Simulated scan of single mutants.
Amino acid sequence: MSACRANRRNRNRRRNSVAAIGAALATLALSACGSGGTSGGGGETQFVQGQGGVSVVKDRAGRQDAPELSGKTLQGEELNATEKFKGKVIVFNVWGSWCAPCRAEAKGLGKVARDYKDKGVEFVGLNTRDPDPAPAKAFEKQFDVPYPSIFDSAGKLILRFPKGSLNPQAIPSTVFIDRDGKIAARAIKPLDEDELRETLDPLVAEK
């Protein structure tokens, strides 16, 4: 009888462990569309956590160079945003049509993109993990997205970013690039209009 009770206790412990692991994984899955290590692994950065979860590099001398933002758009056109928008502030947003937080932030991104275009700010999207561009195109149409998105299903463009500057598995995420082509801020979370404006206004004011 003692052996039977011991076996039952072991089975119960295993079931409880499995249940606990499952609950933890479910919690992580609900927290965002994706999460993981920083782009290219660890690395020294000058980011300082700001309000609303947006990390900024206030010291312009400490900002890292942004990589070339280029590739084919969802419409099949070649786009080199780094060259086309040289001298402008660029808001680079990583998203997927399957991602609920991406849908939640899409309308605000579009509104701020329109409001800041005359201030020398350009928005560029990076659509990732959509194996086919059709759902992403439908997303753009549904939310009236006014800016282009590079189609990069495998997320290779994200890996061009310097170590520690961007999380390749955090979707949505947004990087703010200053007029000198340097990474000035990042958010590894969905952003609302106020957060976008609060991050952009100091960059627009830089001379």
Rank of each mutant, 00 (worst) to 15 (best):
C99L: 01
R186I: 07
F123G: 11
E193I: 04
G181D: 07
D201P: 00
R129N: 11
K141Y: 02
A170Y: 01
P133A: 14
A184I: 07
R179W: 15
P162H: 03
Y116P: 12
V124M: 14
K119R: 15
V121G: 13
F139I: 05
K163H: 05
R114D: 13
F139Y: 14
A136Q: 06
K189R: 15
I188P: 09
K111S: 12
D130H: 08
L109C: 06
P146S: 01
P172L: 00
L109Y: 14
V204L: 10
Q169A: 08
P202G: 06
I177W: 13
G164I: 00
A170S: 09
P172N: 00
G181C: 04
D180H: 10
K119L: 13
L166M: 07
D178G: 04
N167S: 06
A104E: 13
K163P: 03
P202W: 10
T174G: 10
C99W: 03
D144W: 00
L196I: 05
A185R: 04
E140T: 07
E193A: 15
D130I: 14
G120T: 14
P172G: 01
L159G: 02
T128C: 11
G110M: 05
E122H: 09
K111L: 09
R186L: 03
E122G: 11
E198M: 12
P168S: 04
D194I: 06
L196S: 05
Q142N: 08
G120W: 15
P172Q: 01
Q169R: 08
A113K: 06
G120K: 14
K137Q: 15
S173N: 01
I183K: 09
R103Y: 03
K163D: 04
S165D: 03
K156D: 08
S153T: 06
P146A: 02
L203M: 05
A154Y: 00
F151Y: 13
P135W: 06
A170P: 00
I188C: 05
F139R: 08
A104W: 07
L157N: 01
S165G: 00
N167G: 02
L166Q: 04
R103F: 08
T174V: 05
G125C: 12
V124C: 15
C102A: 03
F123E: 10
A134W: 04
L191V: 05
P131S: 14
I188G: 13
V121T: 12
R179G: 04
A138D: 15
S173V: 02
K182M: 08
C99I: 02
V112E: 11
R129L: 14
V145Q: 08
A170T: 01
P148G: 07
A113F: 06
R179Q: 11
S153D: 09
S149L: 07
A184D: 11
D180N: 14
E122Y: 12
L109R: 04
A106G: 08
F123N: 10
F123V: 10
K119D: 14
K117D: 13
Y147F: 14
K107S: 12
E140A: 11
